[in-house]
Amino acid sequence: MKIDLNGRLAIVTGSTAGIGRATAEGLGRAGASVIINGRTATRVDEAVRQMRATFPSIDISGIAADLSTADGATAFVAAAPDADILVNNVGTAFIRDYKGIADIAAIPDEDWLGLFQLNVMSGVRLSRHYLPRMVDKGWGRVVFVSSESGVNTPKEMLDYGMTKTAQLAVSRGLAEAVAGTGVTVNAVLPGPTRSEILGDYMAKQAEANGITVEEAEQGFLQALRPTSLIQRFATTDEVANMIVYTCSEQASATSGAALRVDGGVVRFVA
């Protein structure tokens, strides 16, 4: 299968590192022009510099904007008013040591609301700008990067899981709204992945316990994701491969789906 995205303009939010960066690179290698995004100009500029050096044939640019705010989203779409592909990847999580219900009761309102603003509303704000333009053109791809935590809510990251479930509802609802237009909307559900956030957490756990990162990852899987079938963390490229395919012409019959790259963590077939 050869994915050809020449002539397409793709936006990938939260893409200076991790899954977002791997996705931006994958879309660029498939021929798309790519706009990456991060909160600060320093990180965006450095990521653009590195990606241009590594992949000189990729047409890549960057926009710094805090998409957890309405003002940040407004500034972003003013700088990039049109797109053929939108990957709503930006997001974060608070990884906590869960010892009991008191830990959930202690999660403050600002954590719940902050995660919702970044993980959910960033995608809502950008989708409501770009989707009508895609519909007018008769072609477009919107992908929400959710998580297996959206269907397998983790007690140690309950507020994060809530946002990932919300993304699935938004994704499916938008897909219903644009039915028959040539525009598709889907969600991709990674499992444990060597991304920036979880990778840094594993490195700290390894250092604190005097073990290797690989041993820390195995401990995480055994304690919190024992149903993993691949019994390892996925790479960011493995997740990006699914996202890039979902953005392609070849995926034109896939819409309203929740596509899992979870390593088999979720124990149901559908």
Rank of each mutant, 00 (worst) to 15 (best):
K2I: 14
L5T: 10
R8F: 09
L9I: 08
V12T: 01
G14S: 02
G18K: 03
T23M: 01
A24G: 05
A24V: 00
A24K: 00
G28T: 08
A30E: 04
A30T: 06
G31K: 06
A32M: 02
N37C: 10
R39G: 04
T40V: 13
T40Q: 11
A41N: 11
A41E: 15
V44Y: 02
D45C: 05
E46N: 14
A47I: 09
R49C: 07
R49T: 14
Q50R: 15
T54D: 15
T54S: 15
T54Q: 15
F55Y: 15
I60R: 13
I60S: 14
S61P: 09
G62H: 12
A64N: 13
A65G: 10
T69E: 11
D71H: 15
G72T: 12
G72M: 13
A73F: 06
A73E: 05
T74P: 10
A75P: 05
A75H: 10
F76P: 11
A80K: 15
P81R: 11
D82P: 01
D84T: 06
N89Y: 12
T92K: 03
A93H: 12
R96C: 00
D97K: 12
D97E: 13
Y98K: 01
G100E: 00
I101D: 11
A102R: 01
I104N: 09
I107Q: 01
I107F: 02
D109I: 06
D111F: 00
W112F: 05
L113I: 11
L113F: 09
G114R: 10
L115K: 03
S122M: 01
L126D: 00
L126H: 03
S127I: 00
S127T: 06
H129R: 00
H129A: 02
L131E: 04
M134Y: 06
M134N: 07
V135N: 01
V135F: 07
W139V: 04
R141S: 07
V143F: 04
V143Y: 04
S147L: 03
S147T: 01
E148Y: 11
S149N: 07
S149M: 05
G150S: 08
G150P: 06
V151S: 05
K155M: 08
L158F: 03
D159Y: 06
Y160M: 04
M162E: 10
T163Q: 02
K164C: 07
K164F: 10
A175S: 15
A177E: 13
A177I: 11
G182A: 11
G182E: 06
V185G: 10
V185Y: 12
V188R: 05
T193V: 13
M202W: 13
Q205I: 09
N209C: 03
G210V: 07
G210S: 06
T212N: 00
E214N: 13
E215H: 01
E215N: 02
A216D: 09
A216C: 08
F220M: 06
Q222Y: 08
Q222N: 14
Q222M: 12
L224F: 12
P226K: 04
P226C: 10
R232I: 08
F233Q: 04
T235A: 04
T235Y: 05
T236G: 09
T236E: 15
D237I: 10
V239A: 01
A240K: 01
N241P: 01
I243Q: 04
C247R: 05
C247E: 05
E249S: 13
Q250K: 14
A251T: 00
A253M: 12
A253L: 14
S255T: 15
G256R: 04
L259G: 06
L259I: 15
V261E: 09
G263H: 03
V265A: 10
F268G: 08
V269Q: 08
V269Y: 12
